[in-house]
């Protein structure tokens, strides 16, 4: 059954009977306690990514690797990151694979990417809260592509470390969308810092956003943060 399902993937495309692939979906779950079987299954699925199969078949493979992918599948997935049609589904797996190799692959792809694909990779690094990518994300804050800078700000907000906050404070973008994202990210960093017990660092951030020069809802956010700091025991 499994062999037949893999055979079906060779010609699988939009409109094909999805039930043909059910044995693979079942194997992804049932090999949980059989390391060798799962490793073999992972390798077989990863091999599809370099094969001459449809975008739909690769889409399916990435969905399966999201569940069982390990460091072993990362090279095959990383190879798709620069591809317009497949970059997202490669991230679909890489973003969720806990192995450090997955984060490294995303970081290494960043300098070579541009436009929407770069936005996507930045987004995935942010979701992973990848502290090692902070310098690269800090640099991306100044990217001439506002969508990239905006994504970098959001990613730094997700990471939320003092280094991320520092990078955001240095942002000088005049683009309204980037400023909006950077403000939100600074508030997110302040929340993270306060939760981590770094009250004075958080307070500085909140105060800087509570002034009359900010839109009202941002002032409210800053004030709310200051209240949280005042209520937090040292």
């Amino acid at each position: 059954m499994l062999d037949q399902a893999f055979e079906a993937l060779k010609t699988y495309d939009w409109g094909a009977d999805r039930n043909q692939l059910l044995p693979i979906e079942e194997a992804v779950i049932t090999t949980r306690d059989d390391a060798a079987a799962r490793q073999a299954l992972e390798a077989r699925i990863a091999a599809l990514l370099a094969a001459d199969v449809s975008r739909d078949a690769k889409d399916f493979a990435c969905r399966m690797l999201m569940i069982i992918g390990s460091a072993a599948a990362v090279p095959a997935l990383a190879a798709l990151l620069p591809e317009h049609d497949e970059s997202h589904m490669a991230r679909y797996a890489l973003e969720r694979i806990p192995a450090d190799e997955a984060a490294r692959a995303l970081r290494e792809a960043l300098p070579k990417a541009s436009g929407p694909l770069k936005v996507g990779i930045i987004g995935s690094l942010g979701v992973r809260r990848d502290t090692a990518s902070v310098p690269a994300l800090a640099a991306s804050l100044a990217d001439s592509d506002a969508a990239v800078a905006r994504a970098a700000a959001t990613a730094l907000g997700n990471i939320g470390t003092p280094e991320a906050a520092k990078a955001l404070a240095a942002s000088r973008s005049t683009n309204a969308d980037v400023k909006l994202a950077a403000t939100d990210a600074r508030l997110a960093c302040a929340d993270s810092l306060l939760a981590a017990g770094k009250k004075s660092e958080a307070l500085v951030l909140y105060k800087s956003l509570a002034g009359e020069d900010q839109p009202k809802h941002v002032r409210l956010a800053g004030t709310r943060g200051m209240l949280a700091c005042a209520g937090k025991a040292q």
């Binding site: 973003e95 996507g120 930045i122 987004g123 969508a147 959001t154």
Partner: peptide, 11 residues
């Protein structure tokens, strides 16, 4: 817990 969003959408 989550699934990667297609570019250019970031959360």
């Amino acid at each position: 817990l989550d699934r990667a969003r297609r570019e250019p959408w970031v959360l």
